[in-house]
Nucleic acid binder design. Structure first.
Length: 644
RNA sequence: GCCCUUGUAGCUCAGUCGGUAGAGUGCAUCCUUGGUAAGGAUGAGGUCAUCAGUUCAAUCCUGAUCAAGGGCUCCA
């Protein structure tokens, strides 16, 4: 008698996994099992016999990440079955589960459109309601080729032929049979909570030389509640969309017919930018950086020398001045190199840390532009540190500290990844090892967990990438630190060492926010437009109840303004409720109401943007309140800001 | 670049089965002096993305162009 352990219980395992699990689990629990893991190895169908010698079976539940992947993969099959019923001519290709759902690619004469969704969804619902079992069959390759040839599914034939094993597995639900590795849920009833999301074109095998297929994206969950929660979260992301908020809060705009992919900053948006830039410059000065600025246009010969013309030309814009060709800078590093090379440097001068809020232009294909997050002209908080090799680790650590402090300032969690030497790369082994070790040691010294991406570095050196996590769990790549041995070489940068000889400095490229445009976009989405008080373009708005309060309101505005608080007054001939609504929609942190009572007593009634009412306060109290809230995020961590 | 969707007032969107257009909001003027998320009236505002074709007639049908939104590594 064979026995296996299931969640701590020993049960008899005579036939299938399903039967074994059923003995150990409650009926309710068993119903949500989609697959099982034998001895923590591969995932198996429930209908599989318990493998001989198996000691432990781990059930995989539908609401776990692994279980969801199985469930979604099965749902993709159900969708394909539905599509084949409705569009018998459609050729099936592949249909895996992906991060938030699944897709299936079909070869059809007329691409699918979202108008087809309701019919397909209805068909899927029928199949799900029928609770057809998924059955598995292992056949030889030859048999599979014949089967799919008979079915007139050329893509499947191609797939079978490309598989190296002797046998392949087929899964059938209802009348639909598909080549598939599995595992699958026991029956189609698990695909009941599905929704089709979008259509897209996709190339067979992702290669643009191949046939264009029609892809349908969908998602599925273990129960209706989870599906609804996911759809609600999508709504939430939509509500936070920085493009929508940017328009509503009049921060910025795009003029597609004038300059696609380039931002027009409106006064309020520019205020946010200016505050951020101002803060950021001071922070860099405090940390030993010097500000520099290079030209927008450099002669083409310079780009040839730097290697950009060979490796980056596709992304660059060029222009002509009189007889000479110029390239518009896509990066700031070249000017910084030339600034270093402008003087003979001593080891005593090192490190040189050059900081520039550098405006760069890069050609992005029209299909990838996306609000502030992907643009053609943007501003990098760029710096280049030129140092002696032995200073590298300390310099990297300094950069990591800036990143850490900035993330803390905004309350972002973040992840760090170190990318090592790729296959095709330049530079000596010693240099790579020195640089990679410096990166690792610095991150470890800072006590930050990290992961290693083997072979993912730039061709000229290893790098650290930082991805921040916003408050609804989305990841954004912004900071990067890259070690570069090549450019100092190409531009023959040197310093005179203690020994009187010339040595080659190492260069560190780094950007913390990455692109100011992008970073502001992330901030807008993260805070859903309600920027922290220190960054709010308008920190306080004084509202009058009637025009009897105008004089006092304007005086209060002027007083607060003179105390360094960004204040506006709304003395329009409108009712208070209307003005409160507008101030609230503008996400103004402090709404100050001046009516008859306040004129008598002096000061204003204070309302916060969350609706809380703090009652009557004097001008001095209000100023102190706002100032305290603006300074609050700076109390911890290494950032500071002068609000005077 | 390629696929799907979309393009009508500053913004959000109706609409015309082919006869040159409408709402809400915003804007302007007037009335209203109102206490914490929308007081009322009147008015201005459009080459229906652009260019061709079909037609007596095109914002609508057809084609092309431009732009925007979503998607295009993750092997059955």
């Amino acid at each position: 008698m064979m026995e296996v352990r299931v969640e701590g219980q020993l049960v008899e395992a005579e036939e299938t996994i399903a039967q074994a699990l059923q003995k150990a689990l409650s009926g309710k629990k068993f119903k949500t099992v989609v697959a099982a893991c034998a001895d923590n190895n591969v995932l198996l169908d429930l209908s599989t016999p318990v493998p001989v010698g198996c000691a432990e079976l781990t059930p995989v539940y539908a609401d776990t990440p692994e279980g969801l992947a199985v469930l979604r993969h099965s749902t993709a099959h159900v969708m394909a079955a539905a599509v084949k019923r409705l569009f018998p001519k459609a050729k099936v290709t592949i249909g895996p589960s992906v991060d938030n759902g699944f897709y299936y690619d079909f070869d059809v004469e007329k691409p699918f459109s979202s108008e087809d969704f309701s019919a397909i969804e209805a068909e899927m619902a029928k199949i799900a309601a029928a609770r057809q079992p998924f059955t598995r069959r292992d056949v030889s390759k030859a048999e599979a080729v014949k089967l799919f040839t008979d079915m007139d599914e050329p893509y499947k034939v191609e797939l079978v032929e490309s598989i190296e094993a002797d046998t392949v597995s087929l899964y059938t639900c209802g009348t639909f049979t598909d080549l598939c590795r599995g595992p699958h849920v026991p029956h189609t009833g698990f695909a009941a909570n599905a929704k089709l999301m979008s259509v897209a074109g996709a190339y067979w095998h992702g290669d643009e030389k191949n046939q264009m297929l029609s892809r349908i994206y969908g998602t599925a969950f273990a129960d209706k509640k989870a599906l609804d929660a996911y759809l609600k979260q999508l709504e939430e992301a939509k509500r936070r969309d920085h493009r929508k908020l940017g328009r509503e809060l009049t921060l910025f705009t795009f003029k597609e017919d004038v300059a696609p992919g380039m931002v027009f900053w409106l006064p309020r948006g520019m205020m946010v930018r200016t505050i951020l830039e101002d803060f950021w410059r001071r922070e860099h000065l405090k940390r030993g950086y010097e500000m520099v600025q290079g030209p927008q246009l450099l002669r083409v010969e310079t780009w040839q020398k730097s290697g950009h013309y060979d490796h980056y030309r596709e992304n660059m814009y060029f222009t002509q001045i009189e007889e000479d060709a110029y390239g518009i800078k896509p990066m700031n590093c070249i000017a910084h190199m030339l600034i270093y090379g402008n003087e003979l440097r001593s080891y005593r001068d090192l490190p040189q840390r050059y900081f520039e809020l550098g405006v760069v232009h890069r050609h992005e294909k029209s299909g990838v532009l996306h609000g502030l997050l992907r643009v053609r002209q943007f501003t990098q908080d760029d710096a280049h540190i030129l140092c002696a090799p032995e200073q590298l680790e300390d310099e990297i650590l300094g950069v990591i500290h800036i990143i850490r402090d900035l993330m803390q300032l905004f309350g972002f969690q973040y992840k760090v990844a170190i990318s090592t030497r790729p296959q095709s790369s330049i530079g000596t082994d010693e240099a790579w090892e020195l640089a990679t070790n410096a990166l690792i040691k610095a991150v470890e010294h800072a006590g930050i967990p990290y992961e290693i991406n083997e072979g993912d570095g730039a061709f000229y050196g290893p790098k650290i990438d930082v991805r921040l996590l916003d408050c609804i769990g989305r990841e954004w790549q912004c900071s990067t630190i890259q070690v570069d041995f090549t450019l100092p070489e190409r531009f023959d940068l040197t310093y005179v060492g203690q020994d009187g000889e010339r040595h080659r400095p190492v260069m560190l490229h780094r950007a913390i926010m990455g692109s100011l445009e992008r970073f502001i976009g992330i901030l807008i989405e993260n805070f859903a437009g309600a920027l922290p008080t220190w960054l709010a373009p308008e920190q306080a708005r004084v509202l009058t109840v009637t025009d009897a309060g105008d004089k006092a309101a304007l005086a209060l505005r002027d007083t607060l303004t003179s105390m360094g608080i960004r204040t506006a007054a709304d003395t329009r001939n409108e009712k208070l409720g209307f003005k409160v609504r507008e101030a609230q929609l503008a996400k103004t942190p402090y709404i100050l109401v001046v009516g008859e009572k306040e004129v008598q007593a002096g000061g204003a009634n204070v309302r916060l943007r969350n609706g809380e009412n703090l009652g009557l306060k004097s001008a001095a109290e209000i100023a102190a309140l706002i100032r305290a809230e603006a300074e609050e995020p700076f109390k911890q961590g290494g950032m500071c800001y002068s609000f005077s």
